[in-house]
Design a protein around this nucleic acid. Structure first.
Lengths: 184, 184
DNA sequence: GTCGAACCGGAACGATCATTCCGATTCTAG
DNA sequence: CTAGAATCGGAATGATCGTTCCGGTTCGAC
């Protein structure tokens, strides 16, 4: 059983790490995280043996939320809308969250053990949207992830404003739709 | 007039910097560049007062080539093909070249003084392609740059193979084409 | 060929970072 | 309440980085 103060500090560290890593990405220093959390650096290292461990804890948490969001939308009435809503939501998030982007970018390559199955969750959205003809049938998961990763990376790197995001995604979405069913 | 050995070393440094920065991005250390160039670090600093100066020299050179390439294609017989060829070529390059990506990503924001006018060069390709109906008329430069930057970033970050690149770009290109003119 | 100026290499400096370590403090079982 | 174990904070460590500095070397005008 963990001591009460240790447990409270662990929560503080996670909270601070989320804020700082989200703002500064992997460049954030442990000193700053410790400062924001109001603890010493040693305290962080007792819970997370290395910077990468802490980083992964945050990323895994975000991945979990991402997967949950996808699961929610998997049962929506209109799979087409659900699909595009999800895509938009993920990109919107990544405008602000640097860590999330790195998480997304790595999904395509290695789905680490223990990680929530975002890939699977997104695939459900894709297949359902394809079944109703909202998305072209020949779009593969690899391609979808590439597009999602691309838009997230750019949105975060260049901090797109809302209008640019909407317009840019409109083009991508048109590319994803069957040729005979343009945006409107 | 610069001494002969100084001039030769300057060339060596630029060559080495291109190789190393291209491979490792901004994280590359001056020590390594010096080592690859076969000179001491001091020699680099005599020509380029700061790391950023050296970095910018490389980036500007790349931007120049990018702009030149666009200018070349600006007089092509088929503007539509020229446009999509250029887009593909840029993304292809960025699979390997990290610096190029950062250059691209910053074009949208601040066109620094002295920088070649890539934006203008690309705009020519866009307008010409739109005039022949190969690209939708309502696609703005901002959106195009966002898409270009997005695909470059993702291609570099995840090292797309050729097939994934082709398939992904096919979707984006379909989104850029008028609704009544699907891929083929 | 000579000699001063320009240039060279790489050691040295100061800053920053991840990580370790330890004396002081705080928690909790009994 | 108390003892001792777990935890704490933050100074110390060692590595790496960008940048500066300087004794030695090389170039080239005369």
């Amino acid at each position: 059983m963990m001591r009460a103060d240790a447990q409270r500090n662990r929560a503080r560290v996670l909270e601070a790490a989320e804020v700082v890593l989200t703002r500064d990405g992997l460049d954030a220093s442990m000193r700053e995280i410790a400062e924001v959390a109001g603890v010493g650096v040693g305290t962080i290292y007792r819970q997370f043996p290395t910077k990468e461990t802490l980083y992964q804890a945050i990323v895994l948490d975000r991945m979990r939320r991402l997967a949950d969001r996808a699961d929610e939308l998997a049962t929506a009435d209109d799979p087409g809308t659900a699909f595009f809503t999800y895509f938009t939501a993920v990109v919107e998030d990544s405008t602000v969250k640097k860590v999330l982007v790195d998480a997304l970018a790595s999904v395509g390559i290695d789905a680490k053990a223990g990680a929530p199955d975002i890939r699977g969750a997104i695939e459900v959205l894709l297949v359902r949207a394809q079944a109703t003809g909202a998305v072209r049938g020949d779009v593969e998961m690899e391609v979808l992830l590439a597009l999602l990763s691309a838009t997230c990376l750019a949105a975060q790197h260049n901090t797109w404003d809302e209008e640019l995001r909407t317009r840019t995604l409109a083009v991508v979405f048109d590319g994803l739709r069957p040729a005979h069913a343009p945006s409107e």
